[in-house]
Amino acid sequence: MIRSLMKSRETILAGAILLLVIGIAIRFPGFVTPSNLANVFNDTAPLIILALGQMVVILTRCIDLSVAANLALTGMVVAMLNMAMPGLPVPVILVLALVLGALMGLVNGLLVWKLDIPPIVVTLGTMTIYRGIIFVISGGEWINAHEMSDAFKAFPREVVLGLPVLSWIAIAVVLGFIILVGRTPLGRAFFAVGGNPHAAVYTGINVGLTQCAAYVLSGALAGLTGYLWVARYAVAYVDIAGGFELEVVAACVIGGISIAGGIGSVGGALLGALFLGIVKNALPVINISPFWQLAISGSAIIIAVTFNATSSRAKGRVILKKAEHAA
């Protein structure tokens, strides 16, 4: 019973999303046209990418609240680079964004691994530091569309096979994560470290190193998204994606990724992000003020975490043979 329930957590969420979409479609058929759905997906792409990075961090019993600040800082750096050197090709910028993001993730990871500082403290701290650095390097100025090169701005919006590159990148990241999480020793180590750190030691897995790797991954994806975000909206300033880290954590929690570590799936994180993306895009359509969004994601976090907690099993040693066979 419990087993099938747990197995189908993604199914429940997918069902909820489907109901939501159908509900909206009944009154506003325009919402479910393929082109609009593609738009919704494209809008949600950054959230999907970051949620997957956050997922591996949470799997290892950590949390990364610095992703949005990392995104904004990387975005500002590449925008300024583009302004200074408009000829820099996009692939170079992509690599730079990934590396810069990964470095910021590494700072988090090293502080958690080597100094054993609680993840929440580390990332609360780096979150404000990264934001502050944006102000320092930009002097608080905005970088606007006309200051960016066309190639820089066009990349994420370029339409390939009917979808913008941004969407394709999100799809690629999802596919990459399916392989990483399911088919590589590192991916499985994320689960092992979070599920039972004690046993991970018995299997020769280095717990701190694995956590650090998760932070680097999350940071690299935040960096990548930083470029895509700045290019797509063609603007960079100190406060872009402010508070987005909460939405990312919300997507993970809604997607059934256990904050206690060790439990979660790529599908869950994807669905969690899609749920929030659909809600966000549907609010204006169904005539609800966008100001509702914050409260909705807050409620979704609380409901999801409560649901996850009550559906998880009670621990305890089963001594009676009878009870074990009955279970």
Binding site: R188, F191, G195, N196, A199, T203, G204, G262
Partner: peptide, 22 residues
């Protein structure tokens, strides 16, 4: 074979057997 089970509840049986040397 340890006395306390040093296994991973949320991984599959096959993975529990081969984690670290799959």
């Amino acid at each position: 074979i340890h006395q306390e089970t040093v296994l991973f509840d949320d991984l599959s049986v096959a993975e529990n057997i081969f984690i670290g040397h799959a």
